[in-house]
Design a binder for these strands. Structure first.
Lengths: 144, 144
DNA sequence: TTAATAAAGGATAAAATTGTCCTTTATTAA
DNA sequence: TTAATAAAGGACAATTTTATCCTTTATTAA
């Protein structure tokens, strides 16, 4: 479904949101341990997210990755996925046709549209603060 | 969503079904032209499908790939996807956790379950004969 | 102002996926 | 029985994705 980059990125962002909600910055080391992802590879992913302003970062001692409380309310999973994997999951043809739409559809076009819309809606409607709140109510996991 | 192998494979199988419904065998050359896929690569995919008995093949002049009318009624897209990509799309965790289920879920587990079930149902409920019939009623495309 | 800390960034490396080429095997028809 | 045809199969090549390592830059606190 998603690339490894995107899987690690989503897990990392959720962890960062959780920590930020507690008033803590998260270091690369703490993140890759918390979500069980390769540190150096995770660093690249976090760089990308920071460059696109989905998360904040600061260098030096007491530095790390974090999110403003405001950002947590507006940042959606869809934004994270779009930065890391592009919008191909929502927009691309299920059979891989370059041009596939209502006017010129593949045989599965109309069957896929509904599913892809649902996926997109789910990701668009889920903000990081929602997940942080969920995780305070229930035991959810970010590793293994 | 699907691998290239699976995209090509699905397109090829649909074309083969279409041709078989007309009483024709489809050669590798005709298939890769009809669905715009790399011939040698497509050959490997068709080999896999034939070895798993999703399609039939015969060598020599007048040979090619084909499906029995019976098979067309029972073969589903899900079977094709499972042979080429495995069941990871339906079963794997959206965040890439090795163990993610109702008892030990990731934060997105319950949100993903519905979507993955819908995708699986769609593929399971779509037989090749259905698509062949659809394509006789409406102009659907298998290339570009 | 220096030492320590931590992210940013560049250069590679490993692995997986995608893709090609060539030989072998089976089948058909002349 | 031979020549032509077409899939099967093996070996290899290119590309993309995943992953690592090392240097640079910024920040903090002593």
């Amino acid at each position: 479904m998603f690339s490894k980059s995107c899987e690690y990125g989503l897990r990392a962002v959720i962890f960062i949101a959780q920590q930020s909600h507690l008033g803590h910055k998260a270091s690369l080391t703490s993140i890759s341990q918390a979500v069980d992802s390769p540190p150096a590879f995770t660093a690249k992913i976090l760089q990308q997210l920071a460059k696109n302003n989905l998360i904040d970062s600061s260098k030096g001692p007491k530095g790390g990755f974090f999110m403003a409380p405001e950002a947590m309310k507006t940042l959606t999973l869809e934004a994270v996925v779009t930065v890391l994997d592009g919008d191909s999951i929502y927009t691309n043809c299920g059979l891989g046709l370059k041009q596939c739409n209502d006017k010129k559809p593949c045989p599965l076009h109309f069957k896929f549209v509904a599913i892809k819309e649902e996926l997109k809606a789910m990701l668009q409607n889920t903000t990081l603060i929602m997940l942080v709140n969920d995780m305070n109510l229930y035991r959810f996991h970010l590793k293994r």
